[in-house]
């Protein structure tokens, strides 16, 4: 949350008057939660979604912010002047809230780094904090530039439960590319959401397999990550990453990029 702190300190003095800006904002989606927290001034946010309060997502919720289950009933009861939602979540709840006359702003999931910039600016507009949003974009770009060093681009696979292997047209794929890796999913003809079977993965023989941290408990879907053939591959580094930095297209993806850059720098030159 280093970025948030910096922006919070620099942006506060120049903030637009809160009087005109929405002052009872309720967000019902984890990703709009995070973005709103980075841009809103204190007191603007009335409530965030349940997941923002789940410690495993590492969202730093300021005191005084309430929690919503994201259902039309409890959101309506909070009498928000702005509701923030994702385009693919809470469809029925969002439709009902609009019927009840609430202003709902929907944010599409970010697929590219440019989408992140666009969504930051749009969040700045709907919260009427454009200066803070512009500062956050500048901060994001500076952070990204600092992580790019133009070295060799090792071949890497993104490989998650059930063999899910996102291609370049996904946020995860963009993170991998920004960290200076070449995504082997491209060689398998995957552009956006695709799957690599164990056999295809072994055949592609990437230098690094980037994979998710196993969730608590167990699942058949994650068994594939522990298949003995992965351990038998010679010279392949398996790098588990923290999912929470990859879920939402917010400046926190810089943490994911930084983690991958550290892995890349640890490889043979």
């Amino acid at each position: 949350m280093g970025i948030a702190v910096v922006i919070g300190a620099t942006g506060f003095a120049g903030a637009d008057p809160v009087a005109e800006a929405p002052s009872r904002v309720v967000s019902i989606n984890l990703c709009t939660d995070q973005l709103a927290l980075l841009i809103a001034v204190p007191g603007q946010i009335a409530a965030l979604s349940e997941l923002a309060f789940d410690a495993s997502y590492g969202v730093d919720v300021p005191p005084g912010v309430g929690m919503t289950l994201g259902q039309a009933e409890d959101v309506h009861a909070m009498a928000p002047d702005l509701v923030l939602a994702g385009t693919f979540s809470g469809g029925a709840a969002v439709a009902m809230l609009e019927r009840l006359g609430h202003r709902v702003e929907r944010f599409a999931p970010e697929v590219t780094l440019d989408d992140i910039r666009a969504n930051i600016r749009r969040m700045g507009d709907v919260l009427e904090q454009p200066a803070r949003a512009a500062a956050l974009v500048a901060e994001f770009d500076a952070g990204l530039r600092a992580l790019q060093d133009g070295g060799r681009r090792p071949r890497a696979a993104l490989w998650f439960a059930n063999g899910y292997a996102p291609g370049p047209a996904t946020l995860a794929g963009q993170i991998l590319e920004a960290a200076g890796f070449a995504n082997v999913a491209v060689e398998a003809g995957i552009d956006a959401n695709g799957f690599l079977s164990l056999e295809q993965l072994v055949l592609l023989a990437p230098e690094v397999i980037v994979t998710g941290q196993p969730y608590p408990g167990a699942s058949r879907a994650e068994d594939i990550l522990r298949h003995p053939v992965i351990a038998a591959l010679n010279g392949v580094a398996v790098a588990p990453v923290t999912d929470r930095d990859w879920v939402c297209g917010t400046p926190t993806v810089l943490r994911a990029v930084a983690g991958l850059v550290a892995i890349r720098r640890g490889l043979a030159p």
Binding site: A161, Y215, G217, A218, S219, R220, A221
Partner: peptide, 14 residues
Amino acid sequence: LAPNPWAANDIVFW
């Protein structure tokens, strides 16, 4: 009810 978000995905496997 399992804490693992993938577990519900496994229903079709079982």
